[in-house]
Simulated scan of single mutants.
Amino acid sequence: MFMRILDRFEEILISVLMAAAVILIFFTVVHRFSIGFAADIVSYARANDMPELQAWARSAFRSINSIKLTWAQEACIYLFVWMAKFGAAYGVRVGIHVGVDMLVIRLDPKWRRIVTIIAMSGGILFTAILVWIGSTFVYHVGVGGQISADLEIPMWLVYLAVPLGSALMCFRFIQALWTYVTTGVIVHHDHGHVDGVEEEAAAQTAPQTGGQK
């Protein structure tokens, strides 16, 4: 039950962060385009002696320009930082991280098992060190009272992604190692697999199979 909740939370968090960043980038681009477009209309109306259009364009320009999105770039960076850290943990869980295994697959099963365990243990050790260093760094940043330039939020909240994401990634490495030790299975993602395709194909062939019976 706990693992199901954790898996779902991980997926929802990454999706929300990604959606928020994309939406924010979209509105920022539209905002910049709208300001430039309104300025062009003002210039066109002035050049062609169209006072009504010029007045409307000036009003639109002032209204759009009053919306300040100087903080958007900083917010997007922080959203992508959090998404990357938790996305890395998700990658360990589903086995989508890039790995070079040309040498490993040529080893005898005994040595292949030893090398795999050492590699996964290295991942556990590395992410555990990141948790320790990241936690120490977050503590010192919090004590220093540093805030971000545009959003003016405490920077320790931003850097908190490092220890939290690394802790989850460390847990996923432990989970993968335990699965391999107990079952001999390495979590692996098939890059040729497309979600929903197999289910759709099964749904299409199910009535045919039933009719043949």
Rank of each mutant, 00 (worst) to 15 (best):
S66M: 04
S66P: 07
S66N: 05
I67Y: 12
I67K: 01
K68M: 05
L69P: 01
T70K: 04
T70N: 11
W71Y: 08
A72Y: 04
A72R: 01
Q73K: 01
Q73N: 02
Q73H: 03
E74Q: 12
A75V: 15
A75K: 08
C76N: 10
C76T: 12
I77V: 11
I77A: 05
Y78A: 00
Y78E: 00
L79E: 08
F80I: 14
V81M: 10
V81A: 10
M83H: 08
M83R: 00
M83P: 01
M83Y: 09
A84W: 06
K85Q: 15
K85F: 13
F86K: 02
G87M: 05
G87D: 06
A88F: 14
A89S: 15
A89L: 02
A89Y: 05
Y90D: 13
Y90M: 11
G91Q: 12
R93L: 15
G95S: 01
V98I: 12
V98T: 14
G99W: 07
G99E: 09
G99R: 14
G99Y: 10
D101G: 01
D101E: 09
D101K: 03
M102L: 10
L103N: 07
L103R: 03
I105R: 10
L107G: 05
L107E: 10
L107Q: 09
D108R: 09
D108T: 15
D108K: 11
D108M: 06
D108F: 07
K110A: 15
K110E: 13
W111C: 04
